[in-house]
Simulated scan of single mutants.
Amino acid sequence: MTLRPYLLLALTLALFSCGSDPLPKPKAMLRLDYQKPEYAKVDLKLPFTFEKNTNANDINYIKLDGINNSSGANIIYPNMKGTIYLTYKKVTTTNLDSLLRDAQNLTQKHTLKADEIESIVYENPSKKVFGMFYEVGGNAASQSQFYVTDSLNHFLNGSLYFYAKPNYDSI
């Protein structure tokens, strides 16, 4: 007789514990919210000036002595855990081909880990500035690289690196 109340309770719980049929979750899209960019002019000891996003709170000037009169700057974005590395080199009558080849080879080294490398040509004929922007897809160390030059005096090479293990599915 003492088993009957427990059996009735178990039957009641079994009937009311069933809910509606499970529904699949809708596909989610990654949403990244960034502040609206504001730019400020930067004037370092480089033979050019540029504007940086004010979210970058630190810029390091670097003098690369003995390397083709090179210098550069590191633009650090601590909130995004990334850095843009800029390297400037003076163009001479004999080094433009090697500068272009080196910049392109630097990007091509990522083909081992990259799924794709998309190149976008940059041309500004009115200012006589030409270059290339590379967007690297996949688990490569750098997702973006570029170079610009006026072909006579100046060559600027840049790359973006994040301080995280490359995992393209989660970046």
Rank of each mutant, 00 (worst) to 15 (best):
R101I: 06
G66D: 07
Y77C: 11
K90Y: 08
A114H: 04
H110G: 04
S119K: 14
N68H: 09
I120E: 05
I84Y: 02
Q104E: 14
M80K: 12
L96C: 08
L100W: 03
I117D: 03
T92Q: 02
K113H: 07
Y122P: 00
S70M: 05
T111E: 13
T83E: 05
I76V: 15
N79V: 10
G72Q: 08
K52P: 08
L96G: 12
S98C: 00
K81G: 00
D102W: 05
D97I: 02
L100G: 05
K113I: 01
N55W: 05
K52S: 15
E51R: 09
T94V: 13
T54M: 13
Y122S: 11
N53W: 05
L86N: 04
G72E: 07
F50Y: 15
K89S: 15
Y88V: 08
L64C: 00
P125M: 10
D58F: 08
N53F: 02
L96V: 08
I117N: 03
V121K: 08
L112H: 04
T87G: 01
Y85E: 06
T94C: 00
K90Q: 15
K127Q: 15
Y77A: 12
M80N: 09
G66N: 10
N95E: 04
E51C: 04
N68Q: 14
L96F: 05
P125V: 10
N124K: 12
T83H: 00
